[in-house]
């Protein structure tokens, strides 16, 4: 690994000829394109819960997610950003974000080519700067929210994958990237998002038998993707 000493470790992925790096934070970095891709931010989750009559929480989780995103943008010096869908907890949440958070997002966008991919939670355009696309093709890679069958060089999110590893000190679960030779699925980047075990359907069906999971954390760690029945 040729990263500078101070930089946190990354894990290299080759997908359809593109050289990518999985960051421990759950973001994907494509150095050749200076492109940072994150998925499932679910901004405004607490605001939406309040609107739906659930418990009313101060919407600080948005700030937490944005703080981590700002750090990744800073660290990589990205000039392009792709948010892979479900960036907002629903279409209204985008409009209901507090002014300070909207300003912050605008600041992060400044000087960057920013694309919002539509997700199932936030279909259609949203009232913030940046391009809005259903999906996007860059070189050999296709960026979309939900994985499609038979796709090649596809980068998607949606499932919030997590992987569980059994060590001699018990099981450890982490959000994880899933990658095989045709596609890459990103973990959820947002604070307070749940997760789907990569051993369960439909993830175990989507990914090829030789898929690996890359656990997020201090150091991103690759492991053969755990599957159901493997204990």
């Amino acid at each position: 690994m040729n990263t500078p000493i101070a930089a946190p470790p990354v894990h290299h992925i080759a997908l359809a000829g593109a050289e990518l790096s999985a960051l421990g934070s759950g973001a994907l970095w494509w150095p050749a394109e200076r492109l940072l891709c994150i998925s499932d931010l679910h901004l405004g989750k607490s605001e939406r819960m309040a609107r739906r009559g659930g418990s009313t929480l101060p919407p600080y989780e948005t700030q937490d997610t944005l703080t981590r995103l700002a750090a990744d943008l800073d660290r990589t010096g990205a000039s392009r950003v792709i948010c892979l869908g479900d960036s907002f907890d629903d279409a209204e949440a985008a409009g209901a974000l507090p002014e300070a958070d909207r300003l912050w997002i605008t600041q992060l966008q400044a000087g960057r080519d920013w694309t919002w991919i539509e997700g199932n939670h936030d279909p259609g355009p949203i009232a913030l700067g940046g391009a809005h696309r259903a999906e996007m093709q860059i070189g050999p890679l296709t960026f979309r929210h939900i994985a499609t069958e038979g796709a090649q060089g596809e980068v998607s999110g949606h499932y919030h994958p997590k992987a569980r590893i059994r060590t001699r000190a018990g099981r450890i679960a982490r959000p994880a990237f899933l990658v095989d030779d045709t596609r890459l699925i990103l973990p959820a980047y947002g604070t307070y998002t749940g997760g789907l075990d990569c051993g369960s359907a439909p993830l175990s069906g989507i990914m090829n038998p030789n898929a690996i999971a890359i656990l997020t954390g201090r150091t991103p760690l690759p492991v053969p993707m755990p599957r159901q029945g493997v204990k």
Partner: peptide, 20 residues
């Protein structure tokens, strides 16, 4: 750090074993 060490140990063992 013990968890990181154990995870690193276990994931690299699994990667080796599987040939991946």
């Amino acid at each position: 750090s013990a968890e990181e060490r154990l995870l690193a140990e276990e994931t690299s063992r699994l990667m080796e074993e599987s040939g991946l």
